[in-house]
Computed example of a mutant assay.
Amino acid sequence: MAETTEIPRDDTPAVILVEPQLAENIGMTARAMANFGLSDLRLVAPKNGWPKKGVREAASGATHVLDGARVYATVPEAIADLNFLLATTARERGQMKRVFAPDAAMAELVSRAGQRVGVMFGRERVGLSNDEVSFADAIVTFPVSPDFPSLNLAQAVLLVGYEWRKASGRAVLPFEGAMIAPPASRAALLSLFESLESALAGAGFYPPEKREIIARNMRDMLHRMAMTEQDVRTLRGALRALSRRRGEPSESERMVENGDGAAR
């Protein structure tokens, strides 16, 4: 199936990776960005140069993000055009800055319409330095388990991208799970109840003193299933097959015996 690329928009935040080391992490970051419509990737002094072998394979088709990536020697150069910058960190830095969870952080970025904004991510092993964090207006941290707080670089970008897409109003599901078949009519449900209760009575399912209570409970259960006309037909067909297997007369045969005319 052919891939489609969402057209980048000028109000999307920049993603700044500071001294990323592994080609796989950069490639998977590009993939995560493309998943949520981000395209402004900035690399600060990537270890062992750029481009890296294997980075395009790790991007799994998000090559437009890699092709547009810009490389900078220092953090100040990479963030010079931004009006508002967030720094991601997993630990408290002792700096007088606001601290946001990802959802609140992305709402803050979206509220700054017309400004250039960005999110900065640190090195795979040690994250951002305190000096680098000091360049940011605020901090983003993740509500992870304290028993295992470490996030992969691409995972962190994925979470931020997801929350940004929701906050910006672009998080539209690609398809809906609406019911295709119409709901069953009341007449169809009543007929099913009658068939089911008759079959169960014939099989000796009901204790005589509890038949009415059990029958009501089963009707409530079937109502909760919100069945369609097709569901009802399928269940009635199954009941007819079970009755024939036991040698009982079919529903149409019982109707004829009772003088109810032809089966409907």
Rank of each mutant, 00 (worst) to 15 (best):
Q21T: 09
R264N: 03
G27P: 11
A45Q: 06
A226L: 12
L200V: 07
L41D: 05
D81M: 01
E251Q: 12
G169Y: 15
A113D: 08
S243R: 15
M227T: 10
R9T: 14
L66Y: 13
E209D: 15
E248T: 03
L192E: 10
L196I: 11
D67K: 14
F36V: 07
I213R: 15
T234S: 08
G204V: 01
R246C: 04
M96T: 13
A62F: 10
E253F: 04
E3V: 07
P8C: 12
L109N: 05
S185W: 04
E253N: 05
R211D: 06
E24D: 09
R254S: 04
A14G: 09
L38E: 09
A138V: 07
E77D: 15
A171K: 03
F135V: 14
G204A: 04
K166R: 14
L43P: 08
L242N: 08
A199E: 02
T12C: 02
L200R: 09
Q115N: 08
E197K: 00
D131G: 09
E257G: 11
R9G: 12
V119Y: 02
R31I: 12
V110K: 04
A188M: 14
L17M: 03
R42F: 11
E19D: 02
L85E: 04
N258R: 13
G177C: 10
E124F: 02
S185H: 10
F121Q: 04
A184M: 04
H223S: 09
V256Q: 12
G259F: 04
L192Q: 11
Y206Q: 10
I213E: 15
A188S: 14
E257A: 15
